[in-house]
Design a protein around this nucleic acid. Structure first.
Length: 418
RNA sequence: GCGGUUGUAGCUCAGGGGUUAGAGCGCCUGACUGUGGCUCAGGAGGUCGUGGGUUCGAUUCCCAUCAGCCGCCCCA
C-alpha cells in the first residue's frame, strides 16, 4: 500500500457519500426555513485569531492546532473551530451594525491534532448556526430548537439537550475560587501537571471522568448558585422558552465546553453510542468574543454539530439510508442500437431523469445485470426490431412486466419529474 | 500526548516456522445463440500493513514503524 490517507482523515466513498449529502441538504433546508444564510470562511487563518479567542490554556490551542508558516513567513493555522473565523469575518465586513440581528449557517471542516479514535478525527466536519446581535434568551432558544429539530429530521429522535450556564465574569471568578477551595486537599496530592492544569482552568474538573476527581467534587455547590441575578433570570427565561417549544432538556451543571469564550448559556447533545466521544454537538453564548477580537460589543449564540458523529449514531441506529436510484437503464441488443440508446438517454437526462447506459458493449445479460445492480426502476431494451419501429421494450425491473412502447412515450411511463 | 489492543483477498473472518495461503459475501464469465434478481459451474483478485532481525527457511517468532480500535485526555 504505497499511500494511505493521513492519520485521522477519512475518504468519503461513493458508496456512502449520499449520507453526507442528505445530512447537508437537510441542514440547508432547515437553516433556510429559519432564515439563516450560509457563510464560508477560509480553511486557514492567522494563528493569533485562535490563540486570542479559544484561550491559550485550552488544549485546542496549546497542543491540537495544525500551525505552519507559509513562504511569506505568515503564522497560519488550519481552523480548529468555526466560530472565531466567522466572528472575524463579521467584524471585518461590518456585517452586523448596531441594532441588527444576523443569522448565519455554515458547513465546514475543522482540524485538530489529537490521537484519532472513533468519532474523533484530525479532519472533522461540522454544520453550525450562529445568531449575532441579540442578548435575548429567545436567541438561545431558537438555536437549541433548531439543533433538536435537525437531529429529529435526520433520524436521531428524542435528542436530549444538556443545558447549563456559566454566568458572566464575576460569577465564574467566584465559582473558580469555590472549586479550588473545595478541592484543596485533593489537589495537594495530585501530580504537579494535573494541579497546574486545574489551577489554570478549574472548570475543567467538572466534566472529568476520573472517579477520584468526581469524588473530590462531592458536595460542591453548583455554578448555578453563583449566578448574577441577570444571568439567573436569563437562564430561567430560556427554560420557559424551551418548555414552550416542547424541547426535552436536562440542566446539567457539569457541562463546561472547551473553548474559553463561552458566557452564560452552554449546551450539548450527547449520545451513549459514541464511545468516549459522547457529545454530538456543542454550543452556547459567546457575548465577549467580538470584543476580544477588537470589535464592538456583540452578543451572540451558536452551535456546532459534528457530521461524522451524527453519521456514527445513525449507523448504530441501523439507519444507513439508501442512495438515489436511477430511473432508467438503457439496454441494447446488438450493436446497431447503441446510437439510439445514447440519444434516448440524452433526451431523458435533459428532462431531468437519471439514466444509465452500458458503455462497454457488454452482452445483453450483463447489461441487465448492471441494470439490476444499479437499482434502476426500469430497463429500456432496444434491439434491431425496436430500432426499426422506433420503440423500446420497457421492463419494470421489480415486477418483470414488459411492454413495447414508442421512444417518445418513455418519459411519460417513468412518471413525473420536476 | 499517555496506556492497551488489532492489522491475512473489495468486505467479514479462518489458518499457521517449511512444497501452489483458505472460506463466506461481493465481483467477472457462462448454463444451446434478444432478457436481470434464484440456482449451478467456472474465473479474476493477496509481495498475509511496512521495514528490519532470529532461522537452513517466516505470512507465522522478536523489534521497530505505520494505521485502525478501546480507555485516558480532549471534543465535533
Amino acid at each position: 500500500m504505497p499511500f494511505q490517507a493521513p492519520r485521522g482523515t477519512e475518504d468519503v466513498l461513493p458508496s456512502d457519500s449520499h449520507r453526507w449529502s442528505r445530512l447537508e441538504s437537510i441542514f440547508r433546508e432547515l437553516s433556510s426555513r429559519y432564515g439563516y444564510h450560509e457563510v464560508r470562511t477560509p480553511t486557514f487563518e492567522d494563528t493569533s485569531l485562535f490563540v486570542r479567542t479559544s484561550g491559550d490554556t485550552s488544549d485546542i490551542v496549546s497542543k491540537e492546532m495544525y500551525t505552519f508558516s507559509d513562504k511569506g513567513g505568515r503564522d497560519l493555522t488550519l481552523k480548529p473551530e468555526g466560530t472565531a473565523p466567522i466572528m472575524r469575518a463579521v467584524i471585518e465586513h461590518n456585517l452586523c451594525p448596531p441594532g441588527a440581528v444576523l443569522r448565519m449557517s455554515y458547513i465546514m471542516p475543522i482540524f485538530r491534532y489529537g490521537r484519532p479514535q472513533k468519532g474523533r478525527y484530525r479532519e472533522a466536519h461540522q454544520v453550525g448556526l450562529e445568531i449575532l446581535g441579540s442578548p435575548s434568551p429567545a436567541a438561545d432558544a431558537e438555536i437549541i430548537e433548531m439543533t433538536v429539530k435537525f437531529y429529529d429530521l435526520i433520524g436521531i429522535e428524542g435528542a436530549e439537550v444538556k443545558l447549563s450556564t456559566l454566568g458572566r465574569e464575576e460569577c465564574r471568578v467566584r465559582f473558580r475560587e469555590a472549586i479550588l477551595e473545595h478541592t484543596r486537599s485533593f489537589l495537594a496530592d495530585q501530580p504537579e501537571e494535573a494541579r497546574s492544569k486545574v489551577e489554570r482552568n478549574p472548570l475543567r474538573m467538572l466534566d472529568s471522568k476520573d472517579p477520584d476527581t468526581q469524588a473530590a467534587l462531592q458536595g460542591l455547590r453548583p455554578i448555578l448558585d453563583f449566578l448574577e441575578p441577570e444571568s439567573r433570570a436569563n437562564f430561567d427565561t430560556l427554560q420557559e422558552l424551551l418548555q414552550e417549544a416542547d424541547i426535552r432538556y436536562q440542566v446539567d451543571p457539569s457541562i463546561v465546553r472547551g473553548l474559553d469564550y463561552y458566557t452564560e448559556t452552554v449546551f450539548e447533545v450527547q449520545s451513549s453510542k459514541l464511545g468516549a466521544q459522547s457529545s454530538l454537538c456543542g454550543g452556547g453564548r459567546y457575548d465577549c468574543l467580538s470584543e476580544e477580537l477588537g470589535g464592538r460589543p456583540l452578543p451572540a449564540v451558536g452551535v456546532a454539530m459534528g457530521i461524522e458523529r451524527a453519521l456514527l449514531v445513525l449507523d448504530e441506529l441501523g439507519k444507513a439510508g439508501e442512495s438515489d436510484r436511477p430511473d432508467l437503464f438503457v439496454v441494447t441488443a446488438g450493436n446497431q442500437a447503441a446510437g439510439a440508446a445514447r440519444e434516448l438517454a440524452r433526451k431523458l437526462r435533459s428532462s431531468g431523469y437519471s439514466v444509465l447506459l452500458d458503455i462497454d458493449q457488454k452482452s445483453l445479460k450483463s447489461q441487465l445485470r448492471q441494470a439490476d445492480k444499479s437499482g434502476a426502476r426500469y430497463a429500456a431494451i432496444i434491439g434491431e426490431d425496436e430500432l426499426g419501429r422506433g420503440t423500446a421494450q420497457l421492463r419494470d425491473l421489480a415486477t418483470s412486466e414488459q411492454s413495447e412502447i414508442p421512444l417518445e412515450e418513455i418519459a411519460r411511463h417513468l412518471g413525473g419529474k420536476a
